[in-house]
Amino acid sequence: MRKQSVILRTAAHVLLPLLLLFSAFLLLRGHNAPGGGFIAGLVASAALALYLFSLGIASARHALGVDPRRLIGAGLVIAIGSALPAAFFGDAFFTGRWLTLDWFPSGPLKLGTPLLFDLGVYLVVIGSVMTIVLTLAEAEERPDAPSNEGD
């Protein structure tokens, strides 16, 4: 991959944490307002893709920390897991179940299976987008790939 501009590299360093934070915000907001796992996952993958373009494949893989395919697996497990609690109570799969925690002075915190499902979607989206982007980027860098001219 060609050497990228200093501006882009510096910006990527700053933007990655900010965008990841923003994606977490979108994920949590999606529970009762526009937002949600899919859009949050796309924001996070866009951040990682930007990182990849400016700093190269190796550092993007390092920033991701895990094999993106594992992320897909983990996300799917979580999403399926969110369908199961209802079954234990005798409801249809995917029926929403909430756990209310009222330990906080600001009011009760309600954690529900829809949030769990969103989290699963979030991970699946990051995993699949990064799998595709990394596959394409690595194919681009392979020495045996045909050059664009003269074929």
């Binding site: 699949s128 595709i132 596959t135 394409l136 194919a139």
Partner: peptide, 24 residues
Amino acid sequence: IVIGFGVLAFAVVLIHRAYEVVGA
């Protein structure tokens, strides 16, 4: 749109690899 996005991503990978293999 979500599904179309996934399918499109696959199609792009496919034509890239087909281009590599066929060379045209």
